[in-house]
């Protein structure tokens, strides 16, 4: 375990060092993040006027959902996209060979090799939105509800990661799966609105097949004291199930890896 921890520290130190190698690029990225954030806030202000509700959620509550979505989107920028997006490149260029020849779990390497600090301000803003929305909605934070929210956020993160990793792993056969991950990201964007805003068929889809509901709506419900225990258990169960599926699928896919020719 110590070896994995030390490796992770080195991974992230080199990731930050690579980013800082190009000073201008860092500035441009920060600028891009600032512009994208102000864009989404503007959009939000258009969507939710103070008097409006959406699927029974008032605007302060919807703001909490938007905050949670922003946190996950930032997480995707910081962690998922740089790492899982690189799997396709590794397969196409044959550099996956070097990963597979290291005496360390290849899924660990591919999932945590790098990070992009560009998404961190987005996570910060998401948490800010969540806090402000909660305050406006009159949420009273207790220790049990805080713990439950954290657990549900972890479960949501695990679901998102596993779905993304499952798609990235198919590049072993199909090589280029960038389009598929873009579709996934677009679907996840549906998590920025409360689940009740959608028709029943889509609600079912977003709960069981592509469980975006557990990323945003359910944690917000926990804070509002509206979450039902079966829903929480279902979220945890799905997280474990998706992670196990991603793990098993990766081990299965590796048997078909043919390595790019030299």
């Amino acid at each position: 375990m110590g070896r994995y921890w030390r490796t992770l520290r080195r991974f992230w130190c080199t990731a930050v060092a690579v980013q800082l190698e190009y000073q201008v690029n860092v500035l441009i990225e920060l600028l891009a993040v600032a512009m994208s954030l102000s864009g989404s806030l503007f959009l939000l202000s258009l969507f939710y006027g103070p008097e409006q509700t959406l699927g029974g959620w008032n605007w302060a509550q919807a703001l909490m959902v938007q905050g949670l979505y922003t946190v996950f989107d930032g997480m995707a920028t910081t962690w998922l996209r740089p790492n899982l997006g690189a799997i396709v490149t590794h397969v196409r260029e044959g550099t996956l060979d070097f990963v597979l020849l290291k005496p360390i779990d290849s899924q660990f390497w591919l999932s945590l090799r790098t990070l992009s600090p560009a998404g961190l301000p987005e996570i910060g803003l998401g948490l800010g939105l969540l806090g402000w929305g909660s305050h406006q909605a009159g949420v009273v934070l207790t220790l049990p509800s805080l713990c439950t929210v954290l657990v549900m956020l972890l479960a949501g993160g695990l679901i998102l990661y596993s779905l993304w990793f499952l798609i990235a792993a198919t590049s072993i056969w199909f090589v280029k799966t960038w389009n598929a991950t873009e579709v996934l990201r677009a679907l996840l964007a549906s998590g920025r609105y409360p689940l009740n805003a959608y028709p029943p068929a889509l609600r079912l889809l977003f709960t069981l097949v592509l469980p975006v509901a557990f990323l945003t709506t359910v944690p917000a419900q926990v804070l509002l004291g509206e979450a039902a225990a079966p829903m929480l258990l279902a979220g945890l169960g799905l997280a474990v199930l998706f992670f196990a599926a991603a793990r098993a699928f990766w081990l299965f896919a590796l048997r078909f890896y043919t390595s790019a020719s030299s």
Partner: peptide, 29 residues
């Protein structure tokens, strides 16, 4: 074992080799 491929590289392109060596040292314990 080890594999060296003349056409592919494991060193991080943007950083000095020493950084990649430190990563490898951690990976191999």
């Amino acid at each position: 074992i080890t594999l060296v491929m003349g056409q592919k590289q494991q060193l991080l392109w943007d950083l000095p080799p020493m950084d990649s060596l430190r990563v490898n040292a951690a990976v191999y314990g």
